Computed example of a mutant assay.
Amino acid sequence: MSEWKARRFWTATTVAEADDGFAVHLDGRGIRTPGKTALVLPTRPMAEAVAAEWDAQHENIDPLSMPVTRSANSALDKVHPQHAEVADMLAAYGDADLLCYRAASPAELAARQAEDWDPALDWAETALGVRLHIRAGVVHAAQNPDGLARLAAQVHALDDFRLTAFHDLVSLSGSLVLGFAAAQGWRDADAIWRLSRLDESWQEDQWGRDDEAHDASEVKRAAFLHAKRFWDMC
């Protein structure tokens, strides 16, 4: 038996102003999320991106071709009901940030980590008001609680849509600092993604590329770049 697929049922896709934002209409009717919430977007650029995704659908609707719509659905159906819990989970990355755990050896890897990651920690001290401290090895050592509280407050201050984007910027990179750096435009998103993959790149340089691991990383890279695009639409 073939799998049932939702079919295109509308002709015209338009953007209209709505209470607290912008709505996308299909033949004059507003879209709802899978959770039955009215899909109201915070900015016109985001609404126009959602409209373009719907307008590009052919006979069968392909949700995988609609990343902005899916992120907006997540903001309303998943992040909004548990905003505090999501913010707490992301803020916790600050206490075990990727950038803070350095190789004791080989010396070449340690030097590359210092060269590439120290500027991000320097940026965070200026932009976020917190200096995270470096540790050698992988054993957890807690950061200063006051600094973590300042970082957590900045995460909790994000609205539902920005927090949705921030979730992927942090969880995919493994770094709260890099998540903030990407969101705030410290460097372009692709350069920040490469910083998060420094250890993997080092391994490739030494032992050659694992094609399966590389392909998985490219999927994550695309998701990271989408998260930055979604953030910018907010």
Rank of each mutant, 00 (worst) to 15 (best):
L195E: 04
H58P: 02
M66R: 14
M1G: 12
S173Y: 05
A189C: 07
K5D: 06
S74T: 12
N73T: 09
L132E: 05
R131H: 09
K228C: 04
R44H: 09
V139T: 14
A91P: 03
L178W: 05
G28R: 08
R221W: 05
P45H: 04
D27E: 02
S74M: 08
T69V: 05
E48P: 07
A114I: 08
Q57I: 00
S65Q: 12
A183C: 11
G147E: 08
K228H: 14
Q143K: 02
D27F: 06
F230P: 01
R209N: 03
R112Q: 13
N60S: 08
A136T: 15
K78L: 15
D97E: 04
M89I: 07
D210I: 06
H167G: 03
V139E: 13
T11S: 12
E53G: 01
D97P: 01
R44Q: 13
S74R: 14
S71H: 14
L225A: 06
R150V: 03
A16Y: 03
H80F: 12
P42M: 06
V170R: 01
F22E: 02
Q57G: 06
F224E: 00
V139G: 03
E108S: 15
L39H: 06
P145Q: 03
A12S: 11
D88L: 11
W123P: 00
R7I: 02
F166L: 02
L151H: 01
T13R: 14
G21K: 08
F9I: 06
G147D: 08
H226S: 06
A72E: 10
F180E: 07
M233S: 12
H83C: 07
I192A: 08
V68L: 13
N60F: 15
G137T: 04
A165G: 06
G147Q: 08
A216S: 14
M89T: 09
S175A: 10
A38M: 07
V177N: 06
P63A: 14
L195W: 01
Q203E: 15
G129P: 09
H58Q: 13
H214A: 15
K220A: 15
V15Y: 10
R209A: 00
V24Q: 05
E115G: 07
R229V: 04
D199K: 09
M1Q: 07
L158D: 04
L169M: 14
I31W: 04
E17F: 05
L98W: 03
F9Y: 14
R194E: 14
H214M: 10
D19K: 14
V50I: 13
K228G: 01
M89A: 13
F161D: 03
A223H: 11
T37H: 14
W231Q: 02
P106R: 11
A136W: 11
E85F: 03
M46C: 01
S71G: 10
D95R: 03
V139S: 12
D27I: 07
A136V: 12
L39I: 05
K220H: 11
V177L: 10
